[in-house]
């Protein structure tokens, strides 16, 4: 039961049907990172998918650029309560990257340059739901927003869209990542307001 706050009327901006519960709209693009921003050169960049049997699939920057790109327009929802609607990206669908990957694993642990990790069910990365994104609003992705490339999985809170992504490790057993071990929800569905443990 919510406590009514004397004298509070608010902005009513959450009347937007595209806004999940507890979120508010922003027009800028705030940054949330746990540490310094890694500065990566595309010539040093590599992305790998490692299966549960240890089989490794790797792409360097040129290989990623050679793959067919998509240009999704998606809404972003950060657990710190801001949402940004209708953002446009360019990147490679995970469906494309997983084309030749054989796996019976159910879980994925995403690793980033700089040491960050986040976990999610493998099925949340497939079927047009996730990309390795390298352009935002028509420009190369800025380092502070995860450039040169980040995971984009917009149907979950934004901490799942790992910046500076370097690899996806497939696992039979779920393994909580960085924020997931620090009190944040294991799955993070904004529409069910899964912010913290137990939500």
């Amino acid at each position: 039961m919510a406590t009514v706050s004397r004298g509070f009327f608010g902005r009513r901006r959450s009347g937007d049907p595209d806004l999940p519960p507890g979120q508010y709209l922003v027009t800028d693009f705030p940054v949330l990172s746990a540490g310094p921003t890694p500065r990566l050169r595309t010539e040093d960049w590599e992305f790998t998918i490692t299966t549960e049997t240890g089989e490794k699939h790797a792409w360097d920057w040129a290989a990623l650029m050679a793959l067919p790109a998509q240009t999704p327009t998606v809404d972003l929802h950060c657990v710190t309560k801001w949402s940004k609607l209708g953002t446009s990206w360019r990147g490679v669908s995970l469906d494309t990257l997983f084309e030749d990957v054989e796996s019976a694993a159910e879980y994925a642990l995403v690793h980033s340059y700089g040491g960050y990790t986040t976990n999610l069910p493998l099925q949340d990365l497939l079927d047009g739901q996730a990309w390795i994104a390298y352009e935002f609003e028509g420009e190369p992705l800025e380092p502070e927003h995860g450039g040169p490339a980040r995971l984009l999985v917009p149907h979950l809170y934004l901490w799942k869209s790992a910046k500076w992504v370097r690899g996806i490790q497939l696992l039979h057993d779920d393994e909580p990542g960085f924020w997931e071990t620090a009190g944040y929800h294991n799955y993070g569905d904004p529409w069910r307001e899964q912010r913290y443990w137990g939500d």
Binding site: P30, P38, T80, K81
Partner: peptide, 17 residues
């Protein structure tokens, strides 16, 4: 060492963002 630097950013919207 970057591994020893912890950050918390405040967006222009008020809370840690």
């Amino acid at each position: 060492d970057p591994a020893l630097i912890r950050t918390e950013r405040f967006g222009p919207t008020g809370g840690p963002a």
